[in-house]
Amino acid sequence: MNIAVCVNHVPDTAAKVKVSEDHSGIDTAGAAWILNPYDEFAIEEALKIKEKTGGTVYVLSFGPAENNETIRKALGMGADEGIRIKPGTAADSLNVARALAAQITALDCKLVFTGKQSVDYDNGIVGQLLAELLGYNCVSVAVALQIDGTSVVAEREIEGGREVIQTTLPAVITAQKGLNEPRYASLKGIMAAKKKVIQEVEAVTMDPVVVTQSFESPAPKTAGKILGTDVQAVPELIKAIHEEMKLV
């Protein structure tokens, strides 16, 4: 079976994020860039299934040439082929999904993984959009997965619990932390990945449906009041919760 994994290249979660002076963009100068953390679970799950049933794992990434670094990381973990989709003029979530869907159809992948969201723009919708564009079933925010033939049983994280979902392939699964323990790339894998040719294709995009207007920084925080040290400070905290916040 051909399996697609859609990955993104994002600033490290430890990085500071600065809004540019004219508010038109995000200044990531100096930030380290990483494979989107949730995508690691997506890659691992694809590799586990490939090891069991055979097949080819394709890594797809929509973005600039820098994304090749992240594609190589996935190849180093054990994915077979890398494809970078060069963004067209519009890169809203629906256009990203559309570009990925075109490749997935061309590659005839009946199982698609992606992280449950990208930790940069935090939309968390590309997997679901992709499933609908492909006409596939979908399990978002998956924390457990079993595939037997074309039958799929997955667990999806919901508020305060998990849904156990039964569905069938073809399907898109979006991975949540907890789905598995992602492997580290082996030295041999990293060396082999360096030699692989990453295929580059142009995105087919349509008019955007969402347009970014500007970026803002959060309101600056002023440090609050230290009520004191140790248990003596407890009554004053209670007073604040009770009288100022009116929460008890």
Binding site: V17, V119, D122, E216, S217
Partner: peptide
């Protein structure tokens, strides 16, 4: 619609507009 949404888990905010 125009909305503000936290990005980078709240390290910044995006103001975006829907045009469909």
């Amino acid at each position: 619609l125009t909305g503000t949404r936290p990005i980078f888990a709240g390290k910044a905010f995006e103001k975006a507009k829907v045009v469909s």
